[in-house]
């Protein structure tokens, strides 16, 4: 395990609901070889609804939080004064721990001159692993009312892969959870739709990925052939468009039932097989992510 270098493709988007999970799952089901699938949308993971894996292992994701030994504590307040997150606060002259605010940096136990602080693991989420047919499946899930999504995402990303391809379903947006999901990826596919919201959020995602120096391209979902704003933007920015998935109420209905569009709609299956071709070709070329001159079909 972990010996074969795995190439990672992250399916991301600035805007939510553009079809990340649909694209990621469809790629998983049309893959040219064995793959590992990581669901990093840990706040709202959905890929399991479509891939229906058999989960056989689950591991807690934890934060080490301080536990104060009241017998040893002399209420000097060093722990509270080092904590920048109000994870320990002095109340009525005694240190009080607020575990949900603790980020687990370990500063308080270092600062305590009495050795009165030990750390205990506090669960904030879980990583589940199993098989979905031939697909190695891993999904992270953050506990309700917890805030440390990036920690859970990093735990999912750390699971070693023995498969030549790793597909990663990312959370929406451009904030720290998305950053954690795309970290170190070989290729990021940004799923967008030809609307003002789609374009605006695509621009934000492109600026974040450029900032990180990652390779990326675009998949246009719900393409209607009349709105060319994404094509125009990509052409100007020299961003490669990897695929277009046409707007079709049938696609929306198949998805709504939890069925897989590549199993139900042969035309859509062909789009994903072609997309794999584009991905492999792009990754085998040093200048792989140049525009290939795909023009708007209107």
């Amino acid at each position: 395990m972990g010996d074969i270098p795995s190439r990672s493709i992250v399916i991301a988007s600035g805007k939510g609901g553009t079809g990340k999970t649909t694209v990621a799952v469809s790629l998983a089901l049309t893959a040219p070889g064995p793959i590992r699938f990581l669901d990093c949308d840990v706040e709202e993971p959905n890929a399991h609804l479509f891939l229906k894996p058999k989960i056989d292992r689950s591991t807690l994701v934890t934060v080490p939080v301080p536990v104060i030994d009241a017998g040893r504590c002399r209420s000097c307040g060093h722990c509270a004064s080092i904590c920048r997150f109000s994870g320990i606060v002095m109340l009525a002259g005694k240190p009080q721990v607020f575990p949900e605010l603790c980020k687990g940096c370990g500063g308080c136990s270092w600062a305590c001159p009495e050795g009165a602080i030990r750390e205990a693991d506090r669960a904030v989420g879980v990583v589940e692993e199993g098989l979905a047919g031939r697909i190695e499946f891993v999904a992270g899930k953050i506990n309700v009312a917890e805030t440390s999504s990036p920690r859970v995402i990093r735990a999912v990303r750390r699971s070693p892969s023995g498969r030549p391809w790793t597909l990663i379903d990312a959370p929406p947006g451009t904030a720290c959870p998305m950053m954690a999901a795309v970290h170190g990826a070989d290729l990021v596919l940004l799923v967008t739709e030809p609307t003002p919201f789609g374009l605006n959020d695509l621009k934000l995602a492109v600026s974040s990925l450029s900032h990180l120096g990652l390779q990326f391209g675009v998949v246009i979902n719900r393409f209607e052939g009349e709105d060319c704003r994404i094509h125009d933007y990509c052409e100007k920015g020299n961003i490669r468009i990897f695929a277009e998935i046409p707007e079709d109420r049938k696609v929306a209905e198949v998805y709504s039932r939890g069925d897989n569009i590549v199993d139900t709609l042969p035309v859509v299956r062909d789009i994903f097989i072609a997309l794999w071709g584009e991905i492999q070709e792009a990754m085998n070329r040093s200048d792989g992510l140049r525009m290939d001159g795909r023009s708007c079909s209107s």
């Binding site: 706040e43 609804l49 709504s256 039932r257």
Partner: peptide, 21 residues
């Protein structure tokens, strides 16, 4: 919410959050 299996799943988690608070 949207009437999809994902929509149902995601709504439930979000509703648990508002209930929590």
């Amino acid at each position: 919410a949207e009437p999809t299996v994902s929509g149902l799943h995601d709504f439930e988690r979000a509703a648990n959050l508002t209930a929590h608070f």
